[in-house]
Design a protein around this nucleic acid. Structure first.
Lengths: 178, 178
DNA sequence: CGCGTCGTTGAACAGGATCAACACGCGTGG
DNA sequence: CCACGCGTGTTGATCCTGTTCAACGACGCG
């Protein structure tokens, strides 16, 4: 939250993600984490994780890698918000979301759940609610996506990527998943 | 660089920083790194660093921590660009820069070198050059900073922080440095 | 049935972008 | 030594993308 009371959403975590890994080696938590759907959450104490990492360098490297990929996503969001205008920004978001969801096995035929309200989308993309609404309509009108009742279907993957100027490289997924 | 040819600067590194740590555990580099001043750069092979981290869990944790702090800065930039308007955005940038510079011992009396052109600033803050110019003038007119010939002086630290809605917590510096 | 959340729409507004000049300092080459 | 070009900073005018405000409709749930 900004001092002015504005919210910025920094990431959406999906099944299998470890949201709090970002603060593993930091004393204070500089963000807050919340759920937007019903969730099953597993907890691991930081101390336990740290002790594990001390003994198992391989595990440490894997988790470290995970945090680096999140950093790459943060960077991509910076350029998305800083340098792309609303339509491309939204398209880019949809591309990222569906690629990540697919990597978790949540996508069937370019179609997946998107349990995110337009208000949350606006706080993630640095736009107003009203404009998010209009941009989503534009994406629908262009025949790129179908989005209703929390369900996203990508109708034209190639063009959606073009509009969103999207390249999945920064997600560092195994090639089979892309 | 965006597909449209627009540039987004994601971070400025100063003396003592390790710019490429972000790709230590990633195969492909998804960003590019350049210098904007004359620099002395030391190189360490990723493999050497990885081997070191395998044997020295302490070192690994310290470097990992470093990357996490960068991730925290990326997050702060997202909210800065996404949710603050130009004046506050610039003020926030100046606050972050001078705090980081001070932690490296580069600040004397709220004053340090800022070898960054307005064009680079604009690409970092997601603004146009012209608007950066005007916003900097505004900060000067408000008596918050003095910025000329690559030299930044903060004239009113308290108010600059207020205008920039700045809290140094996310930089995770030792308390003595703040 | 009533209420809250979410999505949608229209109109007016504003923050910042874009375009086009120009000023200034500096290094380089003629 | 001077002219020139380049990078950088600055200014004014106009345009446009996205915000804000305000209202309404649809839906689900207690």
């Amino acid at each position: 939250m900004t001092g002015e009371g504005k919210r910025q959403i920094l990431a959406f975590h999906i099944t299998g993600d470890m949201p709090d890994l970002q603060s593993l080696h930091l004393q204070t938590l500089d963000i807050s984490i919340g759920t937007i759907t019903a969730c099953k959450v597993g907890f691991i104490q930081h101390e336990d994780l740290q002790r594990l990492c001390e003994r198992q360098a391989r595990v440490a490297a894997a988790l470290w890698r995970e945090t680096l990929i999140y950093a790459a996503m943060f960077r991509e969001w910076i350029t998305n918000i800083g340098r792309r205008q609303a339509l491309g920004r939204a398209a880019h978001f949809m591309c990222e979301y569906i690629v990540r969801a697919r990597a978790m096995g949540l996508v069937e035929d370019y179609s997946c759940e998107l349990p995110i309200t337009q208000e949350e989308l606006s706080d993630a993309m640095g736009l107003s609610i009203v404009h998010v609404n209009r941009v989503l309509q534009e994406l629908r009108k262009l025949g790129l996506i179908n989005l209703e009742s929390r369900h996203l279907t990508v109708l034209d993957w190639t063009r959606l990527q073009e509009v969103g100027d999207f390249d999945a490289g920064y997600l560092h997924l195994p090639k089979t998943a892309t």
